[in-house]
Design a protein around this nucleic acid. Structure first.
Lengths: 328, 328
DNA sequence: CACTTTCCTGTAAGCGTTTACAACTATGAG
DNA sequence: CTCATAGTTGTAAACGCTTACAGGAAAGTG
């Protein structure tokens, strides 16, 4: 089949160790033997076997990415960022998505146990505190995107500032005072942080939170659609604006409004959070999150040595004003 | 570090071969020894090393996915389909994206040479005919998404029928006769097929193709935007409808129209091709392509034995009528 | 010239599995 | 009781690379 080190060494008339030194660019090889070996390598079209290398070196030069999903653009953009960072290195990227059906912990365990990756990037996964502890004892670099945790490198965003910029725009610039919210899934870090910031803003600015305008969501379009649909069908009054804790839910709100002939932004302003690809096309005012940058940072953390410091990155967000939050 | 086969065998008081037989569910092991071994495995929390397995078995149980990109939803949905099919098997998924910057051939070669995957899924890559020939001699299952090629399993879509359904709708149902086109990149199979079908339709139905309404695109939003922008700025007359050979370009057309105050569908009808996630939200009339299904089929082909027949799948498309092609 | 030192190269022992083949045990037949 | 047979288990050689260590040649030193 494919030629091996041994065949190359025979052809070049040197030992396997020397060939190995050449392909690993070790300094201690004469230019002359180097040339001989390179010639043999070229003639045989030799390429080292990844499996054999992994075993011998006890390192895989692979990083694993575990996401809840890959649909909808959000995670895809982070993955894009990761890939950009990994390109041009010798690292490979191996991906696994939970799709809401797979047990997220066992996906992660798979990578951990079979030692198929050197580093792991985990994003928005529901992992028990307990489980994280177990992970941290393993000889693997695990970086979390979305939440800080002691002992782990992580990349998060400044949710608080993002929320404030959005709400300040709605209340101060636009002058709305009757504001509704579509919450994220309880238990996830981003959702909790964003909602806390909303409550803090309301308290600080004397904004009144009306319970019937605080809708439950799970970061999915469908849940937000259903919540608004329900609100309208039940004859409930609408607020002047809805702040949705992510873009997908904003899309759900928009869809529900379209269904019922509620005009945006005429009858209702809508603001999202994330600013994925689709938000721009839908002209959604939203809080921009640097998704690529998050991916790049996470990847560079994951490729660091296992013992390097676990840096904790917090990226800034920025309100992007488009058409969905009021006429200009 | 992690326990190995040897440690398990010692603890269970059996040979490594026996342990191997147990973890591989080989039949020729007494229930009694099986139990002993399983106990030792559990006690040590043993898990086989993927690297060692790869080397010993000469198979990786990994399939590689090479796409031009991962942004924009289109490829992400196919990847989702692939992942769905791979979940619950022991296969891993390793991804690489070209981003327009990487040399696509060398990405593929990487996988080929280092034998890091058993199968490869290639989509919409610009690979020289010559190169495909080289690949086919290798001991690897390569499936192409987007084009048929002798000796390779492939999954394609019925572009012709999709084009006809879209154009028939525009001309017959809507009654438009002045139709413009935004073409895809020359040299790619899908773009060529779709454009051929357009020309055939025009010929058959006596539709007149006006050169100034045949715009060059490269399947990207930006190119389509620029083309329309240019057309409008130069004072050119617009057709009644634009058929864009993929969704992204339709989005570009819509954006350009928005910029210039051209109302869709009032002043101009727009139809796309692909029906990704965003198309539904933008209410774009488009030809639905079963992206998930393509991914699933490709994955199942890729996981087949290397010598099994190379099946050639052609999936059906379906026109999805939304709001962008005329008032209802 | 003998002896270090420096450089380069080779030998061989891993890395953690799988698996062909040999060896052993128990069983039943003759 | 002997021997073939079937069913389990063990031995040891791969798989293709890396790397600690040893060995040898050339060059420098006194």
């Amino acid at each position: 089949m494919s030629p091996t080190l041994v065949e190359v060494s025979r052809r070049a008339g040197v030992s396997t160790a020397t060939v190995s030194r050449v392909i690993n660019k070790s300094a201690l090889v004469t230019e002359a033997t180097r040339a001989k070996v390179m010639k043999a390598i070229r003639e045989l079209n030799y390429h080292p076997s990844r499996a054999a290398r992994m075993l011998a070196r006890q390192s895989t030069e692979t990083i694993g990415v575990v996401f809840p999903d890959i649909q909808g653009g959000f995670f895809a953009e982070v993955l894009h960022g990761i890939d950009l960072e990994v390109t041009d290195t010798r690292y490979h990227l191996i991906t696994a998505f939970a799709h809401g059906t797979q047990d997220e912990s066992s996906l992660v365990e798979g990578f951990l146990y079979e030692r198929s990756v050197d580093g792991l990037i985990l994003m928005n996964l529901a992992l028990p505190e307990e489980f994280l502890k177990t992970i941290s004892t393993r000889d693997m670099r695990v970086v979390l995107i979305d939440r800080p945790a002691p002992g782990f490198p992580s990349v998060c965003i400044d949710n608080g500032t993002g929320v404030v910029s959005a709400l300040a725009h709605l209340t101060e610039t636009r002058g709305y005072s009757r504001i509704g919210f579509v919450q994220g899934p309880i238990g996830t870090y981003d959702a909790e942080e964003r909602w806390s910031a909303c409550k803090a803003f309301a308290r600080d600015k004397g904004l009144i939170l009306n319970d019937s305008w605080i809708l439950n969501g799970d970061f999915s379009e469908g849940a937000a659609f259903a919540a608004i649909d329900q609100l309208i069908l039940s004859g409930g009054e609408l607020p002047e604006a809805f702040f949705c804790l992510n873009d997908h839910m904003a899309f759900g709100v928009m869809e529900a409004c379209r269904k019922h002939g509620v005009s945006i932004p005429g009858d209702l302003a809508v603001v999202g959070f994330d600013d994925g690809y689709t938000a721009r096309l839908l002209r959604l005012t939203t809080v921009h999150v640097p998704l690529h940058e998050m991916g790049r940072l996470a990847a560079s953390e994951a490729m660091k040595g296992k013992d390097e410091d676990a840096a904790h990155h917090v990226l800034q967000t920025e309100l992007v004003i488009r058409d969905s939050c009021g006429s200009n």
